[in-house]
Structures are given as structure tokens and as C-alpha cells.
Amino acid sequence: MRKLFFTILFLITITFNGQSIEKKNNNSEKQKVVATFREIYWNNLPKPKGWVNDYEGIFSDNEERKLDSIITNFEKETSIEIAVVTIDTIKVAKENFDDLSLHIAKTWAFGKKGKDNGILISFSKGYKKFRVELGDGTIKMLSEHETKEIIENDFIPKFLKGNYYQGMLDGIMKIIENLRAKIKKE
């Protein structure tokens, strides 16, 4: 009886250890696949489909159209281009979010040639990460300090409540308001 007990215990131990090794191998394989996917995404960014590129599916079609319309009207008025991209966690590791945002800004090259007057707003709901990239021409009108205040006071409060559309709308409207005021002074 004792021998049978130890035999069963031995088999259970082998089974659990075998499953642990198999899980480690599966996790390692998944990590390799994800890393490869992220590298392919980095090297083959999709072309922007408009001013709002919602790859996380945060906004409804109607919300996307409203944001796009506001940005389009502002661009026609001022030539300043504002783009929004939401980034799904599968596309980038959390620690590389800022790098991907900058890479998208450089690759998509929002802003008029010679004016460098683009702004890219990058957001990941999954990572709770947010970044605003300002072109060299835009940073002359909207300082990093002002941008930080807009992020903290206009975007983030609504995001924290889960109202991503309203936060994005409020933040974009505040950026537009500040830029209009600066343009009037010129």
C-alpha cells in the first residue's frame, strides 16, 4: 500500500513538472510570436486613414467622425494638423509606447512641409499611457509646460472616469483654443 502511494505521488509530481515545463515553453513561444508581430508592425506602420486612427476601438464611428471633423475644420483654418492614434497593447510593449508614438509621428509626418506644424496625440487605454508629440513649428506656439497642463486638466480627468471620447474632445478643444489665441497674437 505504501509503495502504491509513493508511486502515485511520483506520477503526480512528474505530471505537474511536465506541465510546468510545457507552460514555460508555450509562454516563451507566445512571447517570441508577439515580439515578431511588434517588430513587423513597427517596420510596416499602416497609413493613417484620417486624422483619427482608433486601433483600440475606443471610439464609436460617430465619435471618430466628430473628432475628425473638428480637426479638419481647424486644419483648414490654420494649416495646423492634429492627429490621434490609439495603440492596442498587442502592437507595442508598455516600455516602448513612447518610442512607438515618436516613430508614428515621424513616419506619418503630420504637419505642413516646411512648417512642421503637426501634433500627434497617442493613447493606449490598455496601458493607460498618453503622449502628445509636437512638431518643431507647433512647439513654438504651444510649450511643453502648456501641453502638460492640457493633458493633466483636460484629457486625463475624463479618461480616469472611462470617458475617453469626452476626454479626447476636451483636450483637443483646449489645444485648439490655445493655438488660436497664439495665432491671433502674431
Rank of each mutant, 00 (worst) to 15 (best):
E77L: 15
I87A: 05
I156E: 02
K94T: 10
H145M: 10
K23P: 04
N27R: 14
Y41N: 02
L102Q: 09
K174P: 10
K66E: 08
E77M: 14
D154H: 11
I150C: 09
F130G: 01
F37R: 07
K47F: 09
K182V: 08
S28V: 06
P157M: 09
Q31T: 01
K113W: 04
S60Q: 04
N17G: 14
E56R: 03
L67M: 03
N25D: 13
L100C: 10
I172C: 08
K174E: 15
N43Q: 09
A105V: 00
L142Q: 10
N153Y: 08
W51R: 13
K66M: 00
D154G: 01
E177Y: 02
S122R: 07
I139L: 10
K129E: 11
D136K: 10
N163H: 06
E144F: 00
K47P: 06
Y127P: 00
P46L: 11
N43M: 07
E144D: 02
G162P: 07
T72I: 00
N62W: 00
T72K: 07
I58R: 01
L45V: 06
N178P: 02
G114Q: 01
G162K: 14
F5R: 15
K184V: 07
E39L: 13
D170C: 09
K30V: 13
F6I: 14
L160D: 15
D116H: 06
K129I: 08
R2Y: 11
R131H: 13
N178R: 14
N96L: 04
T13I: 14
F10N: 09
N96M: 03
K128M: 10
I150V: 14
A93K: 13
E64L: 11
F37W: 08
I104Q: 02
E133Y: 01
S124A: 11
N153Q: 13
S60N: 06
G18K: 14
P157A: 07
I70V: 12
V85H: 01
N17F: 13
K49M: 04
G18V: 09
K3C: 03
S69P: 12
K3N: 11
E133G: 01
Q19L: 15
I104C: 08
G50S: 00
F123T: 06
F123S: 02
I151M: 15
S122H: 05
S28M: 08
I12E: 00
G162T: 12
R2S: 10
A93L: 07
N44P: 07
S60W: 01
F110K: 06
S79M: 04
E29C: 04
E64N: 11
E152P: 02
D68N: 08
S101P: 01
K148P: 00
E39Y: 11
H145G: 03
A109H: 15
F155H: 06
E29G: 01
N117M: 05
Y55C: 05
E144P: 00
K49C: 01
F10E: 03
D170T: 09
I150F: 03
I104T: 10
Q31E: 03
N17K: 08
K174V: 13
N27W: 14
Q19P: 03
I119W: 01
F37K: 08
K47G: 11
E81T: 12
L45I: 05
Y41T: 02
E64S: 11
E81P: 06
Y55G: 10
D154C: 13
I21C: 11
G126V: 14
I70H: 04
R38P: 09
S69C: 05
K49A: 05
S143T: 15
